[in-house]
């Protein structure tokens, strides 16, 4: 079930360095939200607080509240591992497990959750691969290594792996930056389809991509090197790209900096 996300006064630190400052935003369910902004502005850092991956980095630490359907996933008693089971992630570079077959890659998350029933696994694998628009290409070689696929196929395999566990939210960290234009198009189509079932948040450096796939756009920026990243403006994608409120947003999307 797609969940609504609300960030309240979120600050992210790497040890004592404040990387992202005072994020307040609301992310709609069943919609694609794009994070844009220059490098180092904290988009990815903030994305990674949403599945608490930030805490796997030595020194990574978060303050504030991140509500998912009203529950604070940053609260003291919440297990980061449990959060990650509900919040899937797709990374910048395709990263299928190199030692696993295509099939085992897709069901890796299910197996973690203790699912052992072969027919259930097969069923879910097919459904996930179909949703990821990969089924037709790999159905005859599910037992082959996942690393043997092309880059675009690998990324769709990673998306299948993320949705196989039926998460509530899917985070995508520049999912197309390592792909060719045709694979990019395939992933973008897929992103649009995914929002019918999930809350999708995507970090992208590609302005056209943000305007093509997202419903809402959030613009992040930094005041300078060593300064924390901040959320400058957030709104419907059309408005951000045609008539933003902030001059900094206008400068960025029109290519004047960044």
């Amino acid at each position: 079930m797609a969940k609504n996300i609300e960030a309240i006064d979120v600050n992210v630190y790497y040890s004592s360095f404040l990387a992202v400052e005072d994020i307040n935003m609301e992310i709609e369910p069943n919609a694609v939200t794009a994070f844009i902004g220059p490098s180092g502005c904290g988009k990815t850092t903030f994305l990674r607080t949403m599945n608490r991956m930030i805490e796997t980095i030595p020194g990574g630490r978060v303050e504030g509240q991140l509500m998912m359907n009203g529950e604070n996933t940053l609260a003291a008693g919440v297990d980061p591992v449990a959060v990650r089971r509900d919040v899937g992630m797709v990374f910048q570079r395709p990263n299928p497990f190199p030692t696993m077959s295509i099939f085992d890659n897709v069901v890796a998350g299910l197996k973690l959750n203790g699912e052992r029933n072969k027919s259930t696994l097969a069923e879910v694998a097919e459904r996930a691969l179909r949703s990821a628009n990969l089924w037709e290409e790999v159905k005859d070689r599910l037992d082959r290594p996942g690393a043997g696929l092309s880059g675009g196929q690998q990324q769709r395999l990673c998306i299948a792996r993320a949705i196989a566990v039926s998460p509530d939210v899917i985070l995508m960290d520049e999912p197309c930056s390592a792909l060719d234009p045709i694979s990019t198009l395939a992933i973008e189509d897929l992103i649009t389809e995914l929002k019918t079932e999930y809350t999708v948040v995507i970090v992208t450096h590609n302005m056209q991509q943000a305007s093509r796939v997202s419903d809402t756009t959030a613009f992040f920026n930094i005041a300078g090197v060593g300064q924390p990243g901040q959320l400058i403006e957030m709104g419907p994608t059309q408005k951000i790209f045609s008539n933003p409120d902030e001059p900094a947003t206008e400068d960025y999307i029109s290519g004047r900096f960044g």
């Binding site: 991956m53 591992v81 990650r84 990263n95 299928p96 890796a108």
Partner: peptide
């Protein structure tokens, strides 16, 4: 590769599960 370890952790693996996977 860190990328593969992160993939496992992001799927909801504990540290030991990520090591095993």
């Amino acid at each position: 590769p860190l990328l593969n370890k992160e993939a496992a952790l992001a799927l909801g693996a504990t540290k030991w599960e990520a090591i095993k996977m």
